[in-house]
Design a protein around this nucleic acid. Structure first.
Ligand code: ZN
Ligand code: ZN
Ligand code: ZN
Ligand code: ZN
Lengths: 161, 161
DNA sequence: GAGGATATGAGACATGGTCTCGGAAAGACG
DNA sequence: CGTCTTTCCGAGACCATGTCTCATATCCTC
């Protein structure tokens, strides 16, 4: 479990279209399980783990195989609408997001995730290439901290360094 | 296994002092196993996994417990001289490095790792904080690409995207 | 509908890491 | 040195997160 989301009015925070649509537009088969996984993800906000989805599914009495969930996540990840991110503690979690290249800021208070664009980093990387003679073909950046809501409220509530 | 290192003359690439010294200076107990792990790491260059160390140890007939290797890695990581980094494919690997904050460029040809400093990124993050209202307390950046040596040689050899 | 391509689910397997616990050994001190 | 206390170690169970296999079920096209 990644972090129990308090049910908030953020069910569709960034106004993503339903994920299932992405599968459809990509010409992939729309199957029951895929729709189910897509819906489960749509119903969440912020971080989630594959296990979270499995748990959700169990709670809603929608039986889905473990492998299927991972396969669906792989698909969605390839399509760029779900990303697997690295947590500060070394664990992984997934998050729904836009296909365009970007990065994520993760709130360690509430698990909210905010997409962050790339601008400044692109320059920084060009600079690094010039400096080092390396060719940088990809990168991964994750930011950790507190969202505006959590910054003003109690700084308490879990979080490892 | 993270990537079989071709034995190269880079045994001590950045001129790190022996890792065992770090443990010593930190006032930690110098035990046989810790020394062994430190030496095994010193003898490597580039990326390695805990399993790599275990294999090395086996080959050299230096029996070390699995848990002990992980414990030593944890220690060294806390001291900042070893870091666990995320690979493009989602796997993990360790690498010896300087304690100062920095990031890593990983060559997908040969597994070499180069430390990269933080300058431009710091500005970028300040900018993001101003923009989003978030407080960013930590971050993680990994660069993937090709080192100068590998760029000139065959672009072959594994690597996904 | 019927049929062939494709996806699913159960569960074995793999990997990477943690935990527990009795026994071993470092280091302090005399 | 020898002893004592504290810490560490190793074996192996355990766990979480994924992946694979293969027989079965489902889509989707015709
Ligand atoms: Zn928050
Ligand atoms: Zn980027
Ligand atoms: Zn290289
Ligand atoms: Zn940095």
């Amino acid at each position: 479990m990644v972090s129990e989301r308090r049910s908030s009015p953020h069910s569709d925070p960034a106004g993503h279209p339903p994920l299932i649509e992405t599968l459809d537009r990509a010409g992939l088969r729309i199957t029951g399980p895929r729709r189910a996984v897509a819906d489960l993800i749509d119903a969440r906000s912020g971080l989630f783990s594959a296990q979270d989805l499995l748990d959700d599914a169990g709670r809603k009495r929608v039986p889905i195989g473990r492998a299927t969930v991972f396969r669906a996540l792989d698909l969605l990840e390839e399509l760029g609408v779900v990303e697997r991110i690295e947590l500060p503690d070394g664990g992984h979690a997934y998050v729904a997001c836009e296909p365009a290249h970007h990065h994520h800021a993760v709130c360690d208070g509430c698990g909210r995730v905010r997409e962050v664009d790339d601008h400044a980093l692109t320059d920084a990387i060009a600079e690094i290439e010039r400096h080092t003679g390396w060719t940088v073909s990809g990168h991964r950046l994750e930011l950790y901290g507190r969202c505006p809501e959590c910054r003003t409220t109690a700084p308490a509530e879990a979080s490892r360094s």
